[in-house]
Design a binder for these strands. Structure first.
Lengths: 352, 352
DNA sequence: TATTAGCACTCGATATAATCGAGTGCTAAT
DNA sequence: ATTAGCACTCGATTATATCGAGTGCTAATA
C-alpha cells in the first residue's frame, strides 16, 4: 500500500480496468458495487480483500464514493468522467448496425423544416430511451436562392425566402399602400437578383444601404427594399425542441427522491438547456456533461450528451440527449454522434 | 331512512349540495372525506351521524365510494360527473378577469401556424397547470384564395396555397421537365382563378376532372393541373400538439402508484388522445370525460376536458386539458372553453 | 511488498408487532 | 328524522428485531 493516494496520479492498468468495470456495472444494474459480489460476478482472480484495497484507493482518489458507511461503491462524477473518456479514447463506441433506424426516407419527404426537427428529436429520444433536445439551426448563414412576394390581402404581403438549402421561410409583411400583382412580380425578380447568394446574416448587415444608393430603373425599388428589410429584420431565432420526457419517468431513480425537481427545472427553464446547447454549438464534436459539470444549482444527478451539427462546414445547431448521471453512455454517445452526422448530412445535402 | 336508495332517483336539495361539497373538498385536499371532520370544517348544523346516513345513501347510489372499509368517502366517476354537471347547469363557471393572460398580441404576430398552435398549447397547459393537447385544424374546409408556384430547383416547384384564413400551406412538388419562370407565373394565375373560392376538400374531389375537360388557351393546362393535384393529394393531416406533461409530475397522486403508466400510455399512444379529440370535434361545445369514461384499458384515473373550435361556423379542430380524475374542473372547464373561443375567434378573424 | 483469510462492526432494508386515530355501522333514545 | 353512544375496522405510524451485504483492520502468507 505504498502507492501515493494523496494526490493525483495516473491509474495503473489494473486500477483503470477495474474502475471502468465498476462504472459499467453500476450503469447497468443501478446497484452499489460491493467487493465480494463484484469479483465473483466478473470471475476475477483476486480476492475480495484485494478488491477492497483497490476500491479504497479509488475512493481516496475520488473516483468512487460510498452512499453511506459500509455500503458498496458508486462512481463519482469524476469516475463517470474517467469512464467516458476511456471509451472516447479507445474508440469503443460503435453503432451496431440496424440498431438504429433513422427513417431518412420519411424525413426527406417533409418540406416543412419544423416537422423535420420534431421527427429527428422524437427519433433520438426513442432510440436513446432518454429525453432528446435539439436546437434548431441558425439560418443566418443559409444562402438565399430566391425571393418570392405573394399578395395575401389588401395591405398584407407574404414574403417567401427560398434558400439554397431548400428551406422555405415565410413572413407576413404589412404595407401601407396597395401593390399590384405585376409590381410584386417585378419586386420578386429584383430582390432575387440582388439578394441571391447572400446569407441572411449578410443581408441583415449593410446590404440594404448599399442597394438604396444604387440606381435602378423601372421599379419602385424603395418599396421592394422596405418590404425585404422588414421581413428579414426579426428573422427567426433558433428554437428548442424537446421530446421523450416520458422516458425519464420510466427510470426509477429519477422518479424517487427529489430528482423530479431537477427534471422539472430542466424542462421548464428552457434557458438552461438552450445555454448548454449554445455552448455545444461553439465547437465541433461530441460534448459530455456529467452530473455537476452542468453548472446549475437546480440540476442534480443529470447528464447530457450533445453534439453540434453543420450545414456545409458551418456549425449551425446542436442536438443532444439528457438523462440521469447513471446513463448508458456507451449507447448514447455514438447515437448522438451519429444523429448529429445525419442531421448535418441531411441539411447539407438539401443545400447541395 | 325511508328513501329509496336501491334505484335511480334525483337527489334532494340537501343531498345535492352536500355531494357537491364533498367532491369539492376532495378535489381541493385530495384526502378522503370523513363525516366528523367534514361537518366541522363546513360548520354544518347537522351531526356527524346524520352526515354518515347521507353519505351512506350517496354511496348506495354510487356517487361515493370508500377506498377501504372504515375509511372516509371519495367520489366515484359518477360523483365527479354529477359535480361537473351541476357546475355546468348553474353557470358557476366563470373566468376571473386577468386570471388568464392569453397573449393574443404575441400570437397575432406569428404567421407560421405551427408556431401558433405550439404557443396556444403551451399557454393552456401553463394556465391549467395540467397537460394540454390540441388537434390542429382540418384545413380541408378552408377556402383557397390564391395559389403561387415558385421555382425551387431544376425539377422542384414550391406550391404555395394561401387561404382566405390567411393560412399559408406549402408543399414541395417534383416535376419531370423544366418549367420557365414565366410559365409558373401563368400557372399561378390560372390555378388561382380556377381554384379560388373552393375548399381543399372540394378541390380534392372532381374539380380536376372538370377542369381538364374544359378548354383553355395559351398555357400548358395539363401540367399546371398535375402540379396542383399532386400538391393537394396528400394534404396535411391534423396533428397533435402536447405540452405541459411536466405539470402532471407535480401532482403527488399521479407520481405515486402506477398511475404513471396511465400517463405514459396516453402520451406515447397518441392515437388515444387523437381519438378523443376527434370525437370532441364532432360536436360543438365542452366535453368532459371523467375517469372510466375514457374507454381505454390502459388509462386509469385520468380525466379530460376538451372543446372543439371553429373557423367561421365550421368545426375544424379540438383542444383540451388532461389531468387526474381529481382535477380542478371549476377552473379547467371555463379555461378550456375560453381558449376554444379564442382559437375560434383567432382563426375566424384571420379569414375575415 | 502485495495478497489474502478472518473477524468484528455498520447500517440500510426487510419483517413483525404494537399503537394510534379517523372513520364506520348499528342501536337506542330523542 | 336526527342524534348520542359505542364497539369495531383498518390504514398509517412508530418501534423493535433481524438479516445480509459490505467495510476496515489485523495478522498470516506467498
Amino acid at each position: 500500500m505504498a502507492k501515493d493516494i494523496t494526490q493525483e496520479r495516473p491509474l495503473d492498468e489494473r486500477e483503470s480496468s477495474i474502475l471502468q468495470a465498476i462504472v459499467y456495472e453500476y450503469i447497468t444494474t443501478g446497484k452499489t458495487v460491493g467487493s465480494r459480489s463484484f469479483v465473483q460476478k466478473y470471475s476475477l482472480s483476486i480476492s475480495p480483500a484485494t478488491m477492497r484495497n483497490i476500491m479504497f484507493d479509488l475512493e481516496s482518489m475520488e473516483y468512487l464514493k460510498q452512499p453511506h458507511t459500509s455500503a458498496g461503491r458508486i462512481p463519482t462524477d469524476k469516475g463517470y468522467r474517467f469512464y467516458v473518456n476511456s471509451l472516447l479514447d479507445s474508440y469503443e463506441f460503435s453503432l451496431k448496425d440496424r440498431e438504429i433506424s433513422v427513417k431518412e426516407d420519411v424525413i426527406k419527404r417533409e418540406v416543412q423544416l419544423d416537422r423535420i426537427f420534431s421527427l429527428i428529436t422524437k427519433m433520438l429520444s426513442t432510440e436513446s430511451r432518454y429525453a432528446a433536445v435539439m436546437l434548431t439551426p441558425r439560418f443566418d448563414f443559409t444562402v438565399v436562392k430566391r425571393v418570392v412576394l405573394a399578395p395575401m390581402d389588401n395591405n398584407e404581403i407574404l414574403f417567401i425566402l427560398i434558400t439554397r438549402t431548400g428551406i422555405v421561410l415565410t413572413k407576413k409583411v404589412m404595407v401601407s399602400s396597395n401593390v399590384t400583382q405585376d409590381e410584386l412580380y417585378n419586386f420578386s425578380n429584383y430582390l432575387t437578383s440582388e439578394l441571391c447568394g447572400y446569407s441572411v446574416y449578410e443581408i441583415k448587415g449593410t446590404i440594404f444601404d448599399r442597394l438604396r444608393s444604387e440606381k435602378e430603373d423601372g421599379i419602385n425599388k424603395e418599396m421592394a427594399l422596405d418590404i425585404a428589410e422588414l421581413a428579414v429584420s426579426d428573422y427567426e431565432e433558433p428554437r428548442l425542441h424537446i421530446d421523450g420526457i416520458e422516458n425519464l419517468l420510466k427510470i426509477p431513480e429519477m422518479v424517487e427522491e427529489d430528482r423530479l425537481h431537477s427534471l422539472l427545472s430542466i424542462i421548464e427553464e428552457r434557458n438552461i438547456l438552450r445555454g448548454i446547447l449554445e455552448k455545444t454549438l461553439e465547437n465541433d464534436g461530441i460534448r459530455t456533461l456529467i452530473g455537476a459539470e452542468i453548472e446549475e444549482e437546480k440540476v442534480k444527478g443529470c447528464s447530457m450528451v450533445s453534439t453540434s451539427y453543420k450545414i456545409g462546414n458551418k456549425l449551425v445547431g446542436a442536438i443532444g440527449v439528457i438523462g440521469p448521471t447513471r446513463m448508458d453512455y456507451e449507447k448514447v454517445v455514438p447515437l448522438v454522434d451519429y444523429t448529429g452526422r445525419v442531421v448535418t448530412e441531411l441539411l447539407t445535402k438539401m443545400s447541395k
